[in-house]
Nucleic acid binder design. Structure first.
Length: 771
DNA sequence: CTAGGGTTAG
């Protein structure tokens, strides 16, 4: 439910007093001056009055001339506040309030005339403020807010305007009690001329916390209008930004454009988000894929000359790095230089990380060297830290330069003053694992244990993955058990590695057992573990089991992603179960996922395989309507289908089409199927032309290409051409397989060319022994 | 800063 829009700052309902009265009231100080500044001649009566009020019966006050006399000596509302405060309780101060209300002391200078003169109303406001203060203290911030609410209502009935401090106190109190409507009501009751930035900030906070973003933005809007006299301050900005950033209430999202607008308008009041807020905003924008907006925000702050430090720039650089926007990264770095924003170690970390992720490791190394000065003019003095070193080491390992990574790790302590940590070792261990050097990886594992660097679950997962990918699936489980014995628990990734490995090793039952073990161990699972098992089961053709796991996945609250749907659709298609494939497809659309190019290609391949060209073209049309142009896979499936159907002309037509109209370059799979079919249809010359065309286009013929071609040449007994191709194979290090050998042994021995065959095989002896 | 699944033509 939304309250009516309120023009809170400019106009407010003034139900109890004529506006003239209130205007008059505004002469009262917004904050009462400290009590020590009380005019000297009034200090004397205060203790007297307090003493009388404390020791006599309130019923007797109206007739107490002594009291009356002293009250006449008071000159300012704050004196009344001071007295009421000293009365010590809300009850007593409320009695004082009633007394004053019913027995207003005559004003010091002006002639008496009803209605009550402003001075009197002001006195009452201040006395009531003390009532609120006492009540708040008596009630405590934790207990039920009913008493303050009653008092607030009473003050309204009594037509006592709120002092600014009363309003502050009440708004804060109600907001803390989550009574946001009451907070707003208090604000509405406060005379607009009394409203200061502090009160408005409290109101904003209340509105934002109750999810009334639009009302809050409206208030903010009015505040940012220059004609209004309450100017926003740093605290206003903090209030708004903290609400925008920690969106944990029911309010709507605030769009990036709105935030930029707000920041920009604050900037015109010379108020800027501090470095932390700005950094968080930029990170948030970048994370939601709005790097453009992050860029705009930072530059808006720069344009308005707000102070920008390295941290927000770093956040933007990170985002730009993820988008691979190298150009703007450079641009920002130059701007930082221009604006004298000195980059820190994180800035360089981001840049080096980005270079590494783009596999431009040498440039990363270059930048790393410049860090510690040297003699170069563009050197910077930033000390690399562990993270920076790790980034670089990981970059080296990822491109297979783990030996250099190891070297750098050795220098870390001596040259850079930072000791390798678990992440350092993990990167290098992973480097060796990926290179198949699992032994070396374990040597490093021993080394880290000796160095007192604790392995973690990532170390475990890296080693398990390394073992599994290099023929040690069985012992990987032993290692896992070992580590569990040492207190290292596996996580979802551990199980996903193992499940994939066991599925790949055709040990589906073990994979299923591991999955159950994971669920029982209470380790937090994620969708990927399910995907791994589903994919493994589908690959093994166990689609019933796969769909059972799908149901478990859904029960666990996860969703299938498009890839997983494609896996299942492909699985059913491959097993000729179109009905079920289509079921899955409908389920996918029901879940709100759109088919992608792979989904379409899967169906196209299915109908191609059936030789159903009519349906194939229907799906193709639908695919293009959905905005997906056919790609090399689409063409491949169709070319193959026409080849299989014996329609080589149509296959060649599609092949020419993809070159000319679609600009999709064929790959060796497409060339191979065409060459093979042409040869089988006795069109050796065309096949040879196609093979030349292939080489011209830079597509490498592989063993399958040569096999197809050699078979065709064999049919024509074109020995010379065959010898040429054999030499080419050797030259290009294209290994013959058993099919090559079958063709050649049959053909060449029959025509007495065993010598040529012998020398051909000799050229591969080395590589044969390796494989 | 470090770890996992994955689709469609052969």
């Amino acid at each position: 439910m939304r309250l009516r829009p309120i023009n809170l700052l400019l106009k407010s309902p003034k139900p109890h007093h004529s506006s003239a009265t209130l205007r008059h009231l505004s002469a009262e100080p917004q904050n009462p001056p400290p009590l020590s500044e009380e005019p000297r001649n009034t200090t004397k009566p205060i203790p007297q009055i307090v003493s009388v009020l404390q020791t006599t019966n309130p019923d007797d006050w109206p007739t107490n001339t002594h009291l009356h006399h002293h009250l006449l000596l008071l000159s300012s509302p704050p004196s009344f506040l001071k007295i009421a405060r000293q009365l010590g309780s809300s009850q007593k101060s409320l009695q004082f309030f009633n007394y004053l209300k019913n027995n207003p002391p005559p004003p010091n200078s002006s002639p008496t005339s009803p209605p009550p003169p402003p001075q009197v109303i002001s006195n009452l406001s201040f006395v009531f403020q003390a009532v609120f203060e006492h009540a708040l203290r008596e009630e405590g911030p934790e207990s039920s807010p009913s008493k303050l609410l009653e008092l607030f209502n009473f003050s309204k009935e009594q037509n006592v305007p709120l002092s600014v401090n009363s309003a502050t106190l009440l708004i804060k109190f109600f907001a803390r009690a989550k009574m946001f409507q009451e907070s707003v009501a208090v604000f509405s009751k406060l005379d607009p001329d009394l409203r200061n930035v502090h009160v408005v900030n409290l109101l904003l906070d209340s509105m934002l916390k109750s999810g009334r973003i639009d009302d809050a933005l409206k208030v903010l809007d009015e505040m940012l209008e220059s004609e209004f006299n309450v100017q926003p301050n740093q605290s206003t900005m903090d209030t708004v930004l903290s609400a925008v950033l920690t969106r944990n209430w029911s309010g709507r999202n605030v769009r990036e454009e709105e935030i930029i607008g707000i920041v920009s308008r604050f900037g015109e009041h010379d108020v800027f988000p501090n470095s932390v807020w700005l950094t968080q905003l930029i990170s948030k924008f970048c994370r939601s894929g709005k790097c453009d907006k992050a860029w705009e925000l930072l530059h808006e702050v720069m344009r308005l000359r707000g102070e920008v430090k390295a941290a927000p720039c770093n956040a933007l650089l990170t985002g730009l790095g993820k988008e691979r926007d190298f150009q703007r990264m450079n641009l920002l770095m130059n701007e930082m230089k221009e604006k004298d924003i000195s980059p820190d170690v994180k800035t360089f970390g981001i840049l080096i990380n980005h270079l590494c992720k783009c596999r431009r490791v040498d440039e990363a190394l270059e930048m790393f060297k410049k860090l510690r000065g040297g003699n170069e003019s563009d050197a910077v003095s930033v000390e690399p830290d562990v993270v920076l070193c790790n980034t670089l080491i990981d970059g080296l390992c990822k491109v297979g330069r783990q030996e250099e990574g190891l070297e750098l790790m050795g220098k870390m302590k001596s040259e850079h003053g930072c000791a390798p940590n678990t992440a350092t070792y993990n990167s290098i261990i992973d480097g060796f694992c990926k290179a198949g050097e699992v032994e070396r990886a374990f040597e490093l594992f021993d080394m880290m244990n000796k160095d007192g660097v604790e392995p973690n679950v990532i170390t475990l997962n890296i080693l398990l993955d390394g073992m599994c990918r290099h023929g040690r699936v069985g012992s990987s489980l032993e290692f896992f058990n070992d580590m569990q014995g040492k207190g290292l628990k596996g996580n979802a990734i551990t199980y996903s590695v193992l499940i994939t490995a066991f599925c790949g090793a055709n040990n589906i039952d073990k994979a299923m057992k591991l999955f159950d073990q994971m669920l029982q161990s209470g380790c937090s699972s994620d969708a990927v573990v399910y995907y791994s098992l589903i994919s493994g089961l589908t690959q093994a053709g166990r689609l019933d089991d796969a769909s059972f796991v799908v149901s478990k996945l859904k029960k666990a609250g996860f969703c299938l992603d498009i890839v997983c749907y494609n896996v299942l659709i492909g699985g059913y298609c491959r097993r000729n179960k179109f009905e079920q494939a289509y079921e899955i497809f409908k389920d996918m659309e029901h879940a709100g996922l759109k088919p992608d190019r792979v989904t379409y290609n899967t169906f196209i391949s299915y109908f191609c395989e059936k030789g159903d060209f009519k349906t194939t073209h229907r799906v193709l049309k639908k695919m293009m309507e959905d905005g997906f142009l056919p790609n090399v896979v689409t063409y491949g499936a169709m070319i193959r289908a026409y080849c299989m159907a014996g329609n080589i002309d149509e296959a060649m037509k599609i092949f020419r089409d993809m070159n000319s109209s679609s600009k999709v370059s064929p790959n060796n799979i497409i060339y191979n199927i065409l060459i093979d079919t042409l040869c089988k249809n006795d069109k050796i010359e065309v096949a040879l032309t196609l093979m030349d065309d292939m080489k011209d286009k830079g597509v490498r013929p592989n063993t399958t290409t040569y096999n197809a071609m050699l078979k065709g040449l064999q049919a024509r007994n074109w020995l010379e051409k065959a010898f040429k191709l054999m030499d080419e194979m050797t030259e290009k290090a294209c290994n013959p397989d058993y099919i090559t050998m079958e063709i050649l042994t049959g053909w060449l021995s029959a025509v007495g060319q065993t010598e040529k065959l012998r020398s051909f095989v000799q050229g591969y002896e080395v590589s044969f022994s390796v494989s």
